[in-house]
């Protein structure tokens, strides 16, 4: 799912008629070239049709974010605005505290990602490698927690933040997200899979447990770390529920809660679609960038890790 392929495909998809070289020529091609060819054509037709359904809404939305309100309402299908206007984007910086929301989201996502990488790998390493009394209990504790559905946590989270006096603070928004059982498991499973010999060597050389973990084991865990980074960043960037119940001040709005308030609030009334769509476009960009960059990287690094 790399960007490279994506870029070449716009033309490749159309140009690749039946002449596309089958990867396995041989008997199948000799026997049923016509059938394969016909099947391939059907596949392309289906795929292009489906791809249009999946991609077109985004293209239309981007186009509409550059339209005037009236234009967006009257010509919902037009890909080219009557007059290209940046009014919607300008309003995001004047009528709406969009930069503030963006900053809050960024702050939360970065700290949560760093926290999860650190705490989850620490715990994962301990569960995988270190022998200590109660390890099985801790392991079962995380297993049990895995099954808890996120959506039923809304009320409980609010209650505890109230009790601890953390409601409506950055710490209340961030700290509960700093570690997840899922992240701990991803890290544990990864550490389970790498040979113990390298660490033993480090230990014999006299490195302490943390030192071994930090400078020997963690660098080897890059593939799993990248997985945790992506999951954490994307998860906390897109998180809505927790930020609904952990804060109420407008200054603490993240992109999700802030933009959601655009939809239901005053600015959501009437036909102010360009404004909302512009917000949706801007809030999607960071995750989209992450997605396109890391998609390839994950595959490369995991492939590389196998050598070790």
């Amino acid at each position: 799912m790399s960007t490279g392929t994506a870029a070449t495909t716009a033309t490749g998809g159309r140009a690749a008629d039946a002449a596309a070289p089958p990867r396995r020529p041989g008997r199948r091609r000799k026997r049923t070239p016509a059938r394969v060819r016909a099947g391939l054509w059907t596949s392309y037709l289906i795929l292009i049709g489906l791809a249009l359904i999946y991609v077109y809404p985004f293209i239309l939305s981007i186009a509409a974010s550059f339209k005037t309100d009236a234009d967006a309402t009257q010509n919902p299908l037009a890909l080219v605005p009557e007059t290209v206007t940046f009014a919607a984007y300008e309003r995001l910086f004047t009528d709406v505290p969009f930069p503030l929301w963006f900053g809050n989201s960024l702050l939360v996502a970065v700290i949560v990602t760093l926290g999860r990488v650190f705490f989850d790998s620490l715990a994962g390493y301990a569960l995988s490698r270190l022998k200590f009394r109660g390890r099985t209990f801790v392991f079962l504790f995380f297993i049990g927690v895995l099954a808890v559905p996120g959506v039923v946590l809304l009320i409980p989270r609010f209650l505890i933040l109230q009790q601890l006096g953390m409601y409506d603070t950055y710490s209340g928004m961030i700290v509960p997200l700093l570690s997840t059982a899922a992240g701990v498991f991803i890290m544990k499973q990864f550490f389970d899979s790498i040979p113990v010999s390298i660490e033993e060597a480090a230990r014999i050389d006299g490195a302490g447990t943390f030192r071994t973990f930090w400078s020997v084991v963690l660098p080897m865990a890059r593939p799993a770390l990248i997985t945790v980074i992506i999951l954490s960043f994307q998860g906390s960037w897109n998180e809505l529920g927790h930020f609904i119940v952990s804060r109420q001040s407008p200054e603490l709005n993240t992109l999700t809660t802030g933009v959601a308030s655009l939809v239901s609030g005053q600015l959501g009334s009437g036909n102010q679609f360009p404004l909302q769509l512009a917000a949706a476009v801007l809030m999607t960009i960071p995750v989209a960038v992450l997605f396109f960059i890391f998609q390839r990287r994950i595959m490369n690094t995991t492939a590389g890790a196998e050598k070790g």
Partner: peptide, 17 residues
Amino acid sequence: RAVLRGRGFFRTAFYFP
């Protein structure tokens, strides 16, 4: 499909939402 060109593009398109 093994012979399909542009699998990456289609996968991305379908997964992006």
